[in-house]
Amino acid sequence: MNIQGNRLINFILKSYIGLVFLFIFTPIITSLVFSFNSDRFASIPLGSFTLKWYETIYNDPDVWDAVRTSIIVAVSSSVLATGIGFCTAYTDFRYTFKFKNAYLALALLPPTIPLIIMALAMLAWFSKIGTSGSIFSVIIAHTVLCAPFAMAVIRLRLQQMNRDIEAAAWNLGATEWAAMRYVVIPFVKPAIVSALCLTMAVSFDEFAVAWFVSGLNKTIPVLILEILQGNVDPQINAIGTFVFITTMTLVIIAQLFFMIRSQGSENNTNE
């Protein structure tokens, strides 16, 4: 094969990447564009620029209720999930014990179960223990779904911590609790912020489990799902854009905090 042929192949491959990205981003961009389009039934050519869909959702009390619920759920479950994720990541970092593999499986398995199955299982379980339809159900369910992500983010940060610095704190007279407070937590802090944002974003987007267990406490995605079941309604685009901007902000903050790793990233092991 000669260079000419290679160039042609490279060109084809690179255009192909472009096409694939076009496909992936078409729905995202369409939704953005049509959220400002005046026509009810989206088509080419576009109608005129309008903010009326944003006005509609702004004036819709259901949307505000959903926003409120979503925020309560996302904040609570992200705090819980990050707490549990931190405990788990630290345990994995620091200790070895019997059945540790089972322990880690318990921590990391939830994302591999289809959401619809989790949804049914949670629905049945919550109605059994009597919290069905309350906002707590959604919070608990989202905590289960989000904890593995929090654990992964914090575990990666702990990986960058030189094991000696915790021992150095003990060596300088700190109890294990004090070393946790003055050394481990300060070191992991960026990852904790990162995990909070990431899990908040995951919770903000989850609809299957929330739909099953939320009862009347609809979150935004559940509201979207219900609007979808009705007619074609461009206010979905407006809500979608709003959600997109919120989650992207969270993700970018998460990413920024995760990249703070300039400090003490070397990881020495001992003889």
Binding site: T26, S43, I44, P221, T247, L250
Partner: peptide
Amino acid sequence: IPFFTSYLVRTFSWYVVLAESGV
């Protein structure tokens, strides 16, 4: 990025784009 955009909204977009009188 797509992981953090609502899957529902993306589906709705396809619905609009692919409809018989769609984009």
